[in-house]
């Protein structure tokens, strides 16, 4: 048996994640969007794949639930394109978490994606990716804009301050 980090599955809380997705149906059902247990299970597989492809690992509450709750009232979604849309959103979301250097919180990124998707992109995931999110990433990387951040660098500075070392 190997006790290395590599053996830890991308999503170590699979059952919990399934429960969360089915719970999200409560809200999305208002808009006629409901995931079956099988669809939810498949989406969790997709999520694991996309996490792995993006070189990320997820703990705690799933971003997928937040995506569902944010997008379920979109005029561009219907029962037919719902699961494919969610699969694509997973790929986009984790990919742009990386592209935006983890400087954008989950909630902010999802809100931004929703605003663009329902607004200027008029329901096009392609435009969302190649135009809006690419531009957002470019501006963040160049330091042109700053958003609500979950900045690891901040954490390090805070941690250094926690060392409570004063010299002066």
């Amino acid at each position: 048996m190997d006790f290395g980090f590599s053996v830890v599955p991308a999503d170590v809380f699979k059952e919990k994640a399934l429960g969360e997705l089915l719970e999200a149906n409560n809200k999305s059902a208002e808009f006629g969007l409901v995931l079956t247990r099988e669809e939810a299970s498949q989406l969790i597989e997709v999520k694991s794949h996309e996490l792995s492809a993006a070189g990320r690992i997820e703990f705690g509450s799933s971003a997928l639930k937040e995506i569902i709750e944010a997008f379920c009232d979109s005029p561009y979604l219907n029962r037919q394109n719902y699961t494919d849309f969610l699969s694509e959103m997973l790929e986009i979301f984790y990919s742009y978490k990386n592209e935006t250097l983890d400087l954008v919180s989950d909630s902010d990124l999802i809100s931004y994606m929703k605003a663009c998707f329902n607004g200027v992109c008029q329901g096009s995931t392609e435009l969302l990716k190649t135009r809006e999110l690419d531009e957002l990433s470019r501006q963040i990387r160049s330091g042109d804009i700053s958003l609500t951040v979950a900045d690891p660098a901040d954490e390090f500075i805070t941690a250094a301050e926690e060392n409570e070392i004063e010299f002066n």
Binding site: G55, R56, I57, F59
Partner: peptide, 24 residues
């Protein structure tokens, strides 16, 4: 793993459910 998941939340101040593998 449970401790790690709490640590990730603490690290991201609860603002991100996922982190890059190298961070984890």
């Amino acid at each position: 793993m449970l401790i790690l998941s709490n640590e990730v939340l603490r690290f991201t101040k609860g603002k991100s459910s996922s982190v890059r593998t190298e961070v984890a």
